[in-house]
Every structure is written in C-alpha cells, then in structure tokens.
Design a binder for these strands. Structure first.
Lengths: 343, 343
DNA sequence: ATGACCTATGTAAAGGTTTACATGACGCAT
DNA sequence: ATGCGTCATGTAAACCTTTACATAGGTCAT
C-alpha cells in the first residue's frame, strides 16, 4: 500500500538533536533523562507522530506483549463474556489478545502453537481443558509459555486455574431446592470423565447428605451437557417411572432439555416439577418458565485469569494455584415448592 | 522464564553446512535451492526444532500477518459467530486475529490504533460502523490500513462492506407475513440514524406496496433494537388502540420484547398476533412461541469479510465494493394466519 | 579457447529497537 | 592539583530475518 514510511526513533533523535539512545530512554525511563532534553524529545515525537515499532521492540526484548487465547468454541455463549473479561484486563495492562478457535481439533491446536514458538505471544490462556496437542510432537517440542487454565482445569498438571467454584455452586443450588421443601431431587449430567461434572455432582451429594436426605442412585443420570441429553434423561425417568420433584441440572442447556421434555408432556411448571440450571446463559431468562440458576461471574473469571497470567509473566509467583469464584443464585420462575400430592 | 534460547536460522545453517541465506530460501522459495541442499536444511530444521521468529520476519518484511478486529461488543451473541467466520478464514490463510473490544468508547478505539501504527496489524475489520476515533487526532494522524466493514457500513466512505442484504431480507420477511394473509403489519424499530434500520424499513415498505397494501404511518414505530424498545412500542400501540395483526421487528431482541408484552397481556400467540424477528440469534428457538425470523449467515459473513480484506492486502482490487449475503427465512411458531375477527 | 548465460550459493546490508559499556563534564573531598 | 563519584548522554552491538548483489562453477555455442 501507500506506506508513507513511518517516522523512526532516528528521525526523532535528529530533530531533537540527541542520540537514539536518549530518545529511547526519554520514552521508557523518563527519569534518566534531563528535563530539558526530555522536553525536546517529546516535542520531536509530537511533531513526527512517532510511535515505536512494536516488531523491532519485540525482537529486541524477546517479548511481544501478546496473549494467545485457545478456546474450543469461540461462538459458545458461555465463552464470549469470559473473552470480554480477558480482553478488558489485558488491554488495561497494555497487552493484546490473539484468539485461536480450536474446535477441539488437534491439528488446529498444534497450528496455533506457531504463535508461541515464533515469539508472537508471551503467554497462553487455555479454555480447552488440556494442553494443546503437538506441544510434544517429535521434532516439534515447543517450549510451552506461562499458562493459565480457565473454566476447565488441565488434569495432571500444575497449571494455575481460574474458574467458578463448582462444588460450592452446585451445593448452593441443591440447598435452594431443599429449602423449598424438595427431597426427591434428580441430578442430570453425571460424567465420569469431565472434572466439572464430577465436582457439581459432589456438591449435590454434599447438600443432600447435610440435609439428611438419602442419595437415590436412580435419580442420578448421565449427561454430556447438551440440551438433547437433558431431554433424553427426562424421558428415561418417565420410562422407568422413577420421578423426582425437582431436577438439578449440570448446566442451563441441559435444564432447557428437561423443560422441553416436561412441557411436551404437558406438565405445568413449576407447579408439578421444579428445574434448576447452572451458568445463567443469556437465554435462561427467556425460556418459559424462566430458569432459576446459578450465575457464573464470567466477566470476573476472565479478568482474574488474565490478571494471574500477566502476573506470572511479570515474574510474580502466584500466592495460590487456583482461584475459585463464587456463583450467585438467580431466582426466577422454574422452582417452586413441591406439591404435597405426587403429580 | 526459563527461555532456553530458541534455535535460530544460524544454528540451522551451521548444522546443514550452508549459509543463512540458503536456509531462508529453502524455507521460503524451495525451488531456488538444489534438492540435496534442501534435504539437508530440512533435516537440520527438524533436528533443531527451528521455527522462524515472526518478529524478526515482520520487522524485515514490514508485514505482521495479523488482522485487528474492532467490535463494539465482543460479548454480543450476534457477533460471536461472525468472529468464528473471521477467525476461520484468517487462520486458513496463515493470518492471526487480534481482537479489540471498543464498547463504543472513543478512547479505547484510539488506543487500539496503536496496533496499526506500531505495525502489529496489517489490516482491520470494523464492526463499529464508523472509523475509529483518534485516527485523525492532532499529532496522531495514523495512516489507516486496508479495512473492511462488517454488519454496519461506514457512512460517507468507500470502505468495502460485507453484510446481510437488509432490504431484501426485510422484504422477504414482510412477504411471508403477507402470504399468511396479514394486511395490517406493524414495523417496530424505525430509526433515522442507523443505516441498517432504514434499509429494513424500506424492505418492509417495498413488500407492502408490491402487495397493494397502503402504508399506515401509525403502524411504524421507533426503536433502538433492544428488548425494552420492543416492549414499549407494543404498549404504545395498545395505549393508542391502533393494532396490527402482525409485528415485523427490526431484530430478534425487539421481537422478544413484543412477545413479552403480548404474553403479559395474556394474548394467545400466534393465534391472536403474529410476531416476526430478524437475525436468528440463539434464543430465538427457545422463546414461547419460538420465533419465526430471518437467519443471518453469520459464519459466511465473517468468512467473506476476511476473504475480502486479505484480498486487499494481497493487492487484489475487489471486483465490487460490497458483498450482500442473503438471509434465510426460518419458520417457527410465532407466525400464523390472522383471525378473521379482530382480537 | 572464449564468452555468454544460467544455477546455486554466499556476503552483507537493512529493518527499528534496547541496553551494556564508554565518555565526558561537573562537583566535591582530599 | 588530584582523584573519585555521579549524572547525562553517546556508541555500537545485538535481536533474527530477508534479499540485493556478488561470486563461482558449469553448460553450451561459437
């Protein structure tokens, strides 16, 4: 393009009548330069419209001031608000944010590592729940940079983690149902592989036990967090004719599936069944009945994670290896006391 | 950190027993290098795990292979899928994607320009509908790079635009209502300032005129695209007692407001009123009644925009200055034929 | 045998910073 | 007068590429 050559530090130095070293110092360590000199340099900078060339600087400093964010699905509504938090904090501290949409595809994950190995990013935020494949490929063993995991911890690693306190949140959710009088509470979304699911199940169990309610294994159903899994689990319960008075769901998407199934069977919610979600994603308030759920502080999760990563980059050892933020109970219309008579 | 110094082109050259120029050529212009030499170089690269330092390369080539995306709200559900498209296409062509969340804040917009003026990005995608403020600040007049506007065109400029064909889409939406037998159709979301709104209003008018339906100015109401604006407009109609049989809304959020207002008044939808949205955002299928709407091909919009921008960067004059993609009618349950008797 | 041309490779400059080290001026204690 | 310490600034190397230009060897027509 018509790249009308940008001003360099040399142009500024010439105008100010000093050496380029002095200009650099005037910019980066103002105290080390005489007042009068600094004034002249600043004037020259203003006159030329000089901005320092980030490439040259990064080359020299071995620092790009960029953070790579690796997410399995950038389009996920749960992710976008976290991204806002990540970006806000990074921007505030002078860092840029590079995004990589991996789709859980090993090839893409490996590809994004080029940003790391080519020095284009200093650190990495992982929302994938695992290290990028290809980081230990033969002949490709990229040295991984400082990292922070968000949302899903990386198993068998000491990578710092920032996310919601799933155990506590799920416990609070179950307690809310119990406080409304429910004693037969189903848990939809057990999974032996996903850490998040396991924690939320443990929270559910803890609340029931604390209330002296026996755990009924027939009320705990598998699910992968999709709307369809919620629908299927609900149907399954009706087929077996083992019914709860309330459904505690692994997340809002699952809860939506449950609601759809119950609506289809023409039950009146929340009079006949209560449903509780987790996440508070945007549609939660638009479903009928609107969903009572635990809200994840997504913005703050993003900010805290970025803060931690930048801290690592600046050499601070973190005081603790994981930050768990509390989720907040959002009461809407999908939970009510159970009917004394069974539906 | 424990930056165990990465291999440079010089290390590779030493191992392969050639000069660094040859290594560079073996990588970038393989045909210009003898087969045997190329083999040796590749072997050396494999052995060292060398990757070219993007900073040094960018410095030398004056090209960063990065694209800056400026969006007013990264958290907007309408945006995230566009982002996926943008990122996918960029990644496919070897570019990285840098994101900037401006919140429509002039200061932040100006701040992100540092990526441009410091050579950290070669091009820019604008979702803001205007040039970043500060691009012509005194002493700061950054040369703007190649740009493409998405979603909202930049008025009074010749910046290429990629988006949905709003006129056509809105016309199709209105035609759908007309085909169901509606003749009193309200348009919610007029705005004298926003180009998108004006186009959609024109589409609405065109459809009605083509069907020989007189335009009733009382059925055209202002709105800014928020859910609240939809609710208010609906209330306003009841207060004035000028009622349509169908509501054509500027977007899904507005349609949601209309549905909420009608539900609150205990109308039976779609028997008594039909409601139509535009966008097909994720909750559209979860509202009751689920929303009939025009689906924006967001993924394709993102891809097309990035394709166009990268084309510009590679020196192709675009064949045309704007790309309008068609939206698709999604029929759900919020539209039905009007009752012959007024509600 | 000579020159022209081609191919494969090497040499060195350039790109724009930061910073270790050198320089020089000055004040002050001896 | 000498020496020392401090302060402000300058010189030049280093960061790692790409690439214009130079070189050298080989082929081929004359």
């Amino acid at each position: 393009m018509q790249q009308q050559k940008l001003a360099t530090i040399e142009d500024v130095a010439a105008i100010a009548g000093v050496s380029i070293a002095t200009v650099s110092r005037a910019i980066n360590e103002p105290t080390k330069v005489a007042d009068e000199t600094r004034r002249r340099v600043n004037e020259a900078i203003a006159r030329t419209g000089y901005t320092t060339n980030a490439m040259a600087r990064s080359l020299r400093m071995r620092r790009s001031n960029m953070i790579l964010i690796l997410a399995p699905d950038v389009g996920d509504p749960n992710f976008s608000n976290i991204l806002v938090g990540l970006e806000t904090e990074a921007s505030k501290r002078g860092y840029g944010v590079l995004i990589g949409n991996t789709q859980n595809d090993a090839e893409r994950e490996a590809d994004y590592l080029r940003f790391i190995s080519s020095n284009q990013a200093d650190g990495m935020i992982l929302l994938t729940g695992h290290l990028p494949y290809g980081h230990a490929q033969p002949g490709q063993e990229t040295r991984l940079p400082p990292m922070v995991a968000v949302n899903e911890p990386v198993p068998d690693s000491d990578i710092p983690f920032v996310g919601v306190d799933n155990f506590e949140g799920s416990r609070l959710a179950a307690e809310h149902l119990i406080s409304q009088g429910h004693r037969r509470i189903a848990f939809i979304g057990r999974s032996s592989s996903r850490a998040v699911n396991k924690l939320r199940e443990r929270g559910y169990r803890a609340a029931l036990e604390a209330a002296g309610i026996a755990i009924d294994p027939l009320l705990i159903l598998d699910g992968d967090g999709t709307t369809e899994s919620g629908r299927q689990a609900t149907e399954h319960m009706f087929v077996r004719d083992v019914l709860p008075t309330a459904f505690l769901c692994i997340n809002d998407a699952t809860a939506l599936g449950v609601i759809i199934a119950l609506n289809a069977r023409r039950y009146d919610l929340p009079r006949q069944f209560s449903v509780m979600g987790f996440d508070d994603i945007s549609f939660a308030s638009f479903v009928t009945p609107s969903l009572t759920t635990m809200k994840q502080p997504r913005l703050r999760i993003g900010e805290a994670a970025m803060d931690m990563l930048l801290g690592l980059l600046e050499g601070n050892r973190p005081d603790r290896n994981s930050v768990l933020l509390r989720s907040e109970l959002i009461v809407r219309n999908s939970v009510a006391p159970p009917r004394s008579s069974l539906p």
